[in-house]
Amino acid sequence: MIDPGRLVPRDRTAHPVPRDPEYKTTVARSPNLPLLSMESTTTEETGPRFGHGLIGALDNNLILNWTKGAAPAVGERILMHGRVMDEFGRPVPNTLVEIWQANAGGRYRHVKDTYFAPLDPNFGGCGRTLTDENGYYEFLTIRPGAYPWPNRGNDWRPMHIHISVFGHSFGQRLITQMYFEGDPLIDRCPIASTIKDRSQLDRLVAPLDMARARPLDYLAYKFDIVLRGRRQTMFENKPAGM
């Protein structure tokens, strides 16, 4: 019998560097000492599951979910869609995907966001959904605005949507950000630039997807997500070295 197997060890070169002086907050918030690397155990290989019964009909519609459908949010209407897969290209079905973002003016609905762009009374800023049996997900939302943030003298975040994904193992847990094709602020962003491998940063930039756009309604952007895989092998149960 083929075991689900251990998690594939994380390739840290696929990720941002933990400490980058250009993103100042990382300097005091990144470990100085090396991480302890070990093969995953049941603890990392299991993880929470969320049932469809927990998800409301408007949860993945950020244009309408704040007002429960009473009034739409202001902004450029977009469909954000994609597929969650693992490193072996297998779809990750029935897994929780959550997003959060600023409104069309670049302001978050959060007590600590004091940017003077106004709140949109019809926009909350978060959504959630479960992938379908083939790993696909969709959100209807508005394109968030770019916003300034205190870092170097004049830093701006490119337009972005924050994304949290679970997978089926706690060790697959991932939070990332989606950027938009053509945004000139991506190359000036010290947070995007913590990813030193340009081909990896490109994977966070969603292309405009006119095939999925709906005429006279919304544009579409595609954002696929790859989580860590599990090493399937017929030899998993043999002790190391045997």
Binding site: A14, E87, F88, H162, L174, Q177, I195, R203, L204, V226
Partner: peptide, 10 residues
């Protein structure tokens, strides 16, 4: 094989 999607700060 695919590479894992890079993380970004929350």
């Amino acid at each position: 094989n695919l590479r894992e999607t890079p993380s970004q700060t929350g």
